[in-house]
Amino acid sequence: MLLWINGPFGGGKTQTAYEIRRRLPGSVVCDPEHAGFGLRRVLPPELRGDFQDLASWRQGVVEVLDLALTGHEGVVIVPMTVTDPGYFAETVGRLRELGHDVRHFSLLAERETVLRRLRERGPGALLGRAAGRRTGPRRESWAVRQLDHCLERLREPEFAEHLWTDHSTVPKTADRIAVLAGLTLRPNREGRLRTRVRQARVGLRHIRLD
């Protein structure tokens, strides 16, 4: 089975994916962003755009995930934002055509909720809290510029199953996905402080500087 966790940038996809992996023995996270940023780095800076526009990325994602699903016995978890219907058909749709059991979920939240989460993630936010002040995402940041488009597109029926996460924690969202997918996660026995520290580590490991 493949769990494709979609959602706006800053919507909690990666944290949810790693929460499921932590509590689902044998599962793995396969992040297509790694391939995408690798392809961007091959190009001169002036030619770098959205890597999803590259057919090589879309085809490569299908090839690699097909290999992972064929060769790995456990659940494969993919945290990846895809809002273009054509690109969705070429990735999620193509994997289904190949016979794989793909369960797709869109994590949604109100705009202000996502903006708050963007403010709270990353080293800038951590340093700001340490200094006793709050920091916010720059208006020109790519994630904020994409937010309204992502929220609008992902509400469409083709991007179901929709999960609203405004009042849900990451562990609870992981539990909901597991129930809908017919999976059983280990009980979450982590304390609040340990959860925050672990999630901060996950966030720091996935900061993109390019």
Rank of each mutant, 00 (worst) to 15 (best):
V179Y: 04
G136C: 02
P32M: 09
W57G: 05
R194C: 12
Q15M: 07
R22G: 12
L151E: 10
L65Q: 09
E158D: 01
P85W: 03
A68R: 12
E158V: 08
A17I: 08
S168A: 12
E73K: 13
L183T: 02
P123A: 11
L118G: 03
V82D: 00
G74N: 07
I20Y: 01
R22H: 13
R138A: 14
G132R: 03
T173M: 09
L47T: 08
G49W: 02
S56D: 10
V42L: 15
L154G: 00
L3P: 04
G60D: 07
L147E: 06
C30H: 10
L24C: 06
D148L: 04
T184G: 02
G36S: 07
D31G: 13
P157F: 06
D66E: 12
E19P: 06
D84P: 08
V76N: 05
L43K: 14
R176P: 00
R192A: 14
R40P: 02
S141G: 13
R96E: 13
H72E: 04
A200Y: 02
V78S: 06
L108E: 11
G136N: 12
R139A: 15
L54A: 06
L118V: 03
E97M: 02
A181G: 02
V92T: 13
R41F: 09
F51I: 11
V62N: 05
A55R: 11
P8F: 10
H100N: 06
L98M: 10
E46G: 00
V28N: 06
P45R: 04
D166N: 11
L147P: 03
L98Y: 03
D50Y: 01
V179E: 14
E152Y: 06
P32T: 07
T14I: 01
